[in-house]
Measured scan of single mutants.
Amino acid sequence: NKFNKELQWATWEILNLPNLNEEQVKAFIDSLRDDPSQSANLLAEAKKLNDAQA
């Protein structure tokens, strides 16, 4: 389904953001699992944090 694909994509993207530490990655992945419908928003937040920590 749509959420499953978005969840998989967001998870992959977050795992590959180079500037997030392990705790941050875990927190984003946990949030994705808690509410897959928020995957686009969570991915945007993760990318923003990744850029800020570059």
Rank of each mutant, 00 (worst) to 15 (best):
D35R: 08
F28V: 03
P36R: 03
S39E: 03
K26A: 12
P18W: 06
L17S: 03
S39P: 04
E22P: 10
A40R: 13
L15H: 11
E13Y: 12
L49T: 06
E13L: 07
L15M: 13
L43P: 00
E6T: 04
N19Y: 14
N41F: 14
N19A: 07
K26V: 09
W9I: 12
K47A: 03
N4R: 02
E13I: 07
F3N: 08
R33I: 14
D30K: 11
N50R: 01
D34R: 14
N1G: 06
A54M: 12
K5Y: 14
W9H: 14
Q53R: 02
I29T: 06
S31L: 14
W9G: 05
K26M: 09
N4G: 07
E45L: 11
A44D: 13
T11K: 08
I29E: 02
E45W: 07
L43T: 05
Q38T: 09
D34S: 14
E22K: 06
L49Y: 07
E23W: 14
Q8H: 04
F3R: 00
W9D: 09
N50Q: 01
P36W: 07
F3Q: 04
Q24V: 03
A10F: 15
P18H: 11
N41T: 12
L20H: 00
L20G: 00
N21K: 14
I14E: 01
F3T: 05
A10W: 04
K47T: 11
E45Y: 07
N16Y: 05
D35M: 07
L7T: 07
E45I: 12
L32I: 09
K5Q: 15
K48T: 03
Q8R: 07
A10M: 06
L17N: 01
L20F: 01
N16G: 09
Q8V: 09
N41D: 09
P18E: 13
N1D: 15
L32T: 01
P36Q: 04
L42W: 08
A27K: 14
N41K: 11
A40D: 08
N50F: 01
P18Y: 05
T11E: 05
P36Y: 04
F3D: 15
P36G: 04
L42I: 12
A27V: 11
D30Q: 14
A40M: 14
N4H: 11
Q38S: 13
N1V: 02
W12R: 06
F28S: 01
L7Q: 10
Q8N: 03
Q24F: 02
D51M: 13
L7R: 02
E6V: 05
D51H: 10
L43H: 03
I14S: 01
A46H: 00
Q53W: 03
S39W: 15
N1S: 02
E6A: 03
A52K: 15
I29G: 02
K26H: 08
P36L: 09
A10L: 13
N50A: 06
N19T: 06
V25P: 00
W9P: 02
F28W: 03
K47R: 11
N4A: 04
Q8K: 10
N1Y: 00
Q38L: 12
S39D: 02
S37I: 04
A40L: 13
E22D: 13
I14R: 00
A40K: 12
D35S: 11
L43M: 04
E45V: 11
P18V: 07
N50M: 01
I29D: 01
Q38A: 04
Q24A: 03
N21Q: 07
N19H: 03
F28N: 00
E22S: 14
S39A: 04
E6P: 05
S39F: 15
L42A: 05
D30W: 07
D34A: 14
D35G: 04
D51L: 09
I14F: 04
